[in-house]
Design a protein around this nucleic acid. Structure first.
Lengths: 107, 107
DNA sequence: CTTTCATTTCAATGATTCTTGAAATACCCT
DNA sequence: AGGGTATTTCAAGAATCATTGAAATGAAAG
């Protein structure tokens, strides 16, 4: 991944509403959740939730699928994985020191 | 780490100049690099480099130390590590699927 | 075919962030 | 002290981003 793309993805993550949406959709699992339910869950107006859902979808963090009347969103882990890989490998050159700074198990 | 802090840290990383500075300082290693050398290396004016160096320092990604006339900056991996941990553990609840999406070795 | 529900889009406004160049500060040397 | 180098700070303006509420779209159901 090129730095400009990474910067844009970080920009999408630099908002608490959007981080909150990601968390909610991780909890929701593979079945995902409708835009309305997400909006209620994060305490945002429909248009505000839609704005952030769109930013996340455009960036590739989410998949959107219409299910009759509702739009169902679900998480896609690939972009987050690519971003973590960028940070550790491209940006920090696989630094062992950085690995030690991550508190989860890293091989 | 609380979501608002993570959002702010992502905001700091959402800029190519700043990602570039991090890369340059990872390469520079523990001895770090002066503000002027960093500015030249990333092709930015002194004041622009200073603006971004300040953002990175305030966020805790960098350490600053005066060495006689020059200010020396060096990378601190702890914040990046904390951010990766937030993303994998807090935000994505340690998802095994996310781990599979990271191309480096994860235990 | 009109109504209703779910969601997005739009326009206006406010807030934040970035860039630039000039001025200020900090330090060193003679 | 005075002059030079390194860096930051500041003010102004441009650009980007977020919020709001109203209007538009899409899909189902009476």
């Amino acid at each position: 991944m090129v730095a400009e793309d990474a910067a844009n993805l970080f920009g999408v993550l630099s908002n608490t509403d959007r981080l909150c949406i990601i968390r909610v959709l991780v909890e929701a699992g593979p079945s995902g959740m409708s835009a309305g339910d997400i909006a209620r869950k994060i305490g945002a107006s429909p248009s505000r939730a839609s704005f952030h859902l769109n930013a996340l979808s455009e960036a590739g963090f989410l998949h959107r699928e219409r299910q009759s009347r509702t739009l169902n969103y679900r998480i896609d882990f690939n972009r987050i994985g690519a971003l973590i890989t960028f940070l550790m490998e491209d940006c920090c050159k696989g630094s062992a020191e950085l690995r030690n700074c991550c508190s989860m198990r890293l091989g």
